[in-house]
Write a protein that binds this DNA or RNA. Structure first.
Lengths: 229, 229
DNA sequence: TCAAAAGTGTTTATAGTACACCCATGG
DNA sequence: CCATGGGTGTACTATAAACACTTTTGA
């Protein structure tokens, strides 16, 4: 007996991308203004449909690039949304992906002919369909991740100050962190290299710049740890 | 402009269920022998296709029940597999779910006219398609979960001994745990009720039975903690 | 000289880890 | 009376948390 696959229902499979960025102050999310019905003119996650001959990972990368110009981003899949009426036009299941990117590194790509725009999380507009739910879940995922893996490499410029890194953690975890405890914790992880340079823009005294020690950082990514902050 | 959804590719969407059970000794996985081509006669996860008018959660529940008789199980979705050739017959994306169940509670349901069988993780056969990969990922997910959430309620009988609970954690984490440290840790979580009864089957002295304090257990489920064992 | 951010350590509290002996009972 | 699993506590170590003052320098 060969099972009759042709008797099974086929559906549209979409991918929606939740792209987080950081501007040294707030955690931001990249959204686009829809230029087609339904919900034309409303804000939406970056999404599109899976094609027959690509994986979901490929689709996410392709769609992100098509709609925003951003490329070379590692995205992580996190949940499939399947409410029957989630898309009013036709039955569509959506698999969501999220990524962290450095806003500055991608500003040129995000040029004007794309309808994409960064929003602070606290000022994000209402989104179409179940996209707000996706965003909420992605934030929770990101917060959990920040506690068990080092994070920051993707969101900060190559060289950054301790205060920038701390602000990033504060933005993700949405809470104030004690400066001394933060520095002690980060130093104990042993993933930063302290440079000789100082950033002079933020104060008269200037603050030392750091960069990630790629090798040690990658090691830590492999093995879980727990940051309680 | 109304976007032409009809130009988009549709695909088959499958659900595969990774069902973990525990027999007081080993962590086990429920598999079925396929009774149709391709790969007829080989062992497989419990899977089937999503129908047009159900959510993925519904599909997982329906498929599990259809193929094994097991019902009333809460499953958690965890990953979508989309390699282009993962199913040789036709392009199929599969969303995997996992659940923990108490083997004893479901033995009657798992009657003979189903082709389902429990395998110890260490003795699980080679599975079809990418199902081994799904199983590996599910185990890692379960291990991570066991470290940040209380676990056991679903896998143990209503009344159980400390040793049973410890064996469960040892099976999931795949390591020996010190008895005293384990008891101290579990007691500090404050989710068990010690009963007056003893289980006399395991030793001459008998060992006290416990049950989960449903309310406190549910509270702990909400807020993450960290068990390092 | 002073405003503004950088930098720096210690103490206390909590949680994790390692470890070994006596107890109760049925056979 | 002894074999078997049940039950119990303490000392040590590591990590987390709370907390405040001095330094630098450009304006």
């Amino acid at each position: 007996m060969l099972k009759n696959y042709s008797a099974e229902d086929k559906v549209l499979l979409a991918v929606d991308c939740i792209i987080f960025g950081f501007d040294n102050e707030d955690l931001k999310i990249l959204l686009i203004k829809r230029d087609f019905e339904p919900e034309k003119g409303k804000w939406s996650l970056i999404g599109g449909f899976l094609k027959k001959n690509e994986t979901l990972d490929n689709a996410a990368t392709r769609i992100l690039h098509r709609l925003t110009g951003v490329h070379n981003i590692y995205m992580e899949q996190f949940y499939a949304y399947s409410e029957v009426d989630r898309d009013p036009v036709e039955r569509t299941i959506s698999v969501s992906y999220y990524a962290l990117i450095n806003i500055e590194n991608h500003n040129e790509e995000l040029s004007e002919h794309f309808n994409a725009k960064w929003f602070s999380l606290s000022k994000a507009p209402k989104l179409i369909f179940d996209h707000n739910e996706m965003l909420e879940k992605a934030i929770r995922r990101l917060q959990r991740k920040a506690r068990i893996k080092p994070i920051g490499f993707e969101l900060l410029p190559e060289k950054f100050t301790m205060l920038q890194l701390q602000k990033l953690y504060e933005a993700i975890l949405n809470k104030k962190i004690d400066k001394r405890n933060f520095i002690n914790k980060i130093n104990s992880l042993d993933i930063l290299i302290k440079l000789d340079e100082k950033d002079m823009t933020s104060s008269t005294k200037g603050s030392f710049l750091y960069k990630f020690d790629q090798e040690k950082y990658d090691d830590k990514l492999m093995s879980d740890f727990y940051i309680k902050l």
